[in-house]
């Protein structure tokens, strides 16, 4: 509790952390690599931007170790826009996260898109004042991340492919596992927690509420307005678009279209209008054609 002026306040509480994710709902968070792109994203209606050095499609193409971005680039983006700025740290790399906190980014993504720094442990996110978003492929993984302090979850999908199939698999898996929990009797919850490898109190909470305790976004493979509509109808509360915007032929127009389709996801006529005349989508890769070691979503556990 700090006192600043005449009203005592608690900064960076879990409610304040999850609250920012609540405010991002129904919105589109866009990957940007320059201040100019950040401005285009903001003007097109992005609810936040993810500042990074290379979009996932380029990370995939270039290979090598992908790390946290240069602070100078992050600061340039913070100066360019008024919407929240997120940035990525490597899985388990708490020192990168400390740097991002020192830069006062608004959210940290502990991301499988970067090369993991720890093969066993994720970052202890309770130790930070900045909220974290983490990827998940199923309910157990989502609840492990929340148990570590994540204030927002996103599906992992398969970043940098433009192929929505893995995001759909992950969202459906999350949904069906949540539904399954709600059908269990109280005596079955502990065994379910063991099976999911997830903290018992969180499993109990999901079983009672029928939903995750934090906001769920979709990431990994969104390239079109219809992709956004699809994942919103499958229960995502908003979308991350990585390579899908700035790797397309007309980024500004596509950005606006995906924003519009995310708001009107349940109205096919509006999604159709938003999808019309956008030019070429990003150059895409069929996920099933990737070798196992090229997949990003198995990173983390």
């Amino acid at each position: 509790m700090s006192t600043n002026g005449h009203i005592a306040r608690d900064e960076s509480t879990f409610t304040a952390k999850t609250g920012l994710a609540e405010m991002l709902k129904g919105g589109v968070i866009m990957d940007v690599v320059t201040p100019e792109q950040a401005k285009i994203a903001e003007d097109a209606g992005a609810a936040a931007v993810m500042a990074l050095e290379r979009v996932p499609a380029d990370i995939r193409r270039d290979g090598g170790v992908a790390r946290m971005s240069d602070p100078e680039m992050i600061k340039g983006i913070q100066d360019a826009v008024t919407i929240p700025v997120m940035a990525k740290a490597r899985i388990g790399h708490f020192a990168e996260a400390q740097v991002l906190e020192a830069l006062e980014v608004d959210y940290i993504d502990e991301s499988e898109v970067l090369t993991p720094a720890d093969t066993v442990n994720h970052i202890d996110k309770w130790a930070f004042k900045i909220p974290f978003v983490c990827g998940a492929t199923n309910l157990g993984e989502a609840l492990r991340r929340i148990g570590e302090g994540a204030a927002m979850i996103r599906s992992k999908g398969e970043a940098g492919t433009g192929d929505i199939v893995n995001a759909v698999t992950h969202l459906r898996k999350l949904r069906s596992e949540i539904r399954w929990l709600t059908t269990l009797g109280p005596e079955e919850i502990a065994a379910a927690a063991k099976q999911l490898q997830a903290p018992l109190p969180l499993v109990r909470q999901v079983a009672a509420d029928g939903k995750l305790p934090v906001v769920l976004f979709c990431a990994g493979g969104i390239a079109t307005p219809a992709d956004a509509s699809l994942v919103m109808q499958l229960g995502a509360e908003g979308v991350f678009v990585g390579s899908g915007i700035f790797k397309s032929s007309d980024p500004e127009r596509r950005a606006r279209a995906i924003v519009e389709a995310t708001t009107h996801y349940a109205d096919p006529a509006r999604v159709a209008a938003a999808s019309t005349g956008l030019g070429a989508a990003m150059e895409s890769i069929e996920t099933s054609k990737l070798e196992a070691e090229q997949l990003l979503s198995p990173r983390g556990w």
Partner: peptide
């Protein structure tokens, strides 16, 4: 964003004129 970036988001309790029952629990986010 008058109170600053997310790092300075906070919870606080104070009276709101016309709202009975004592201080109101509030959350300020950016």
């Amino acid at each position: 964003n008058a109170f600053g970036r997310q790092l300075h988001s906070f919870e606080a309790e104070f009276e709101v004129a016309g709202v009975p029952g004592g201080p109101v629990h509030t959350v300020f986010i950016r």
